[in-house]
Amino acid sequence: MSEENLLQVEDVSKIYGYGFLGRVKFPAVDHVTLSMENKPKIFTIAGESGCGKTTLARMMLGMVKPTAGTILYRGKNVHNLKSKDRTWFLREVQAIFQDPFDTFNPLKRVDTYLYETASNLLKLKNDEEIRGKIEEALRFTGLSLEEITGKYPNEFSGGQIQRVSIARALLPKPRLIVADEPVSMVDASIRINILNMFKALLTKTGTSFIYITHDLATAYYISDEIAIMYRGMIVEIGPAEKVLLKRHHPYTQALVKSLPEPGKKEEWKTRVNAPGMEIKEFLSPGCKYADICPHKTERCVKEKPPLFEIGDVKVACWLYE
């Protein structure tokens, strides 16, 4: 039952206004359902920019209210938490954002910020104890308190400050970390260190992750399960291995074919269609990928495909009815 799940997203939608006056309403997240077992796992939400990943993440974090549907964290509705539960939720679930500089106040020393976070979130008063917790968290990310003390955010490189923001997220020993494109602004040689850190946290401390990315190669590297989104809807969801290697949905196929990887020159050269017009696709009553799908039929344009089950993968495509 849902109480056993760590996270349960049930038929969640978010409607936004489009354009200058926002008069045209469109679903930035469109009837999304997914769940995470209460076991250490990395669940990836992947898709190209504008497909609704950040909106979904913010709803999971209780920062944005869904227009419809509910999100339960260990059985509790994250948008309807009583004050005691709210404190509990804020400790259990942590966020890491794409631009680590967003996490920090540019005018505040990074170590001061960590002290404040530790004392607020952990309700600690004792300086020694706070310092101990901060050191422990920093050590995990390969940093030391000494290295960061007295520095302001702009004195760090992008990779370093992202590590500090991860350390901040680790302070309350969260059970779930929602990481929204945590490595897309970090250099390749350091990117993998951060991903390895996530894997190590998973095995050592049992922390689960929602990893949000547009990069399928890193998604494959660390995820247990994955949902692929297009224009607000989940087009394919299941074990990462199967979704990314079997590729049932035509959109998943196009994404993987477009991924530039050394040694895949020939595969990369096969043609794919450029994405269509954003708002038109968002508002389509049928499959939102239909416009540019090579398998499009009349039905696809008119009728939205439900998720069809193929083993433990679910695919929203009429090809698999």
């Binding site: 990117r191 993998i192 260190n193 390895n196 890193t218 494959y220 990314l244 290697l245």
Partner: peptide
């Protein structure tokens, strides 16, 4: 740089570089 590149279909553990530029 090349060793740190994750590849779809290959779960082999990758390693990055320490330090920064």
């Amino acid at each position: 740089l090349i060793r740190s590149l994750p590849k779809l279909g290959d779960k082999k553990q990758r390693t990055g570089l320490g330090g920064h530029p």
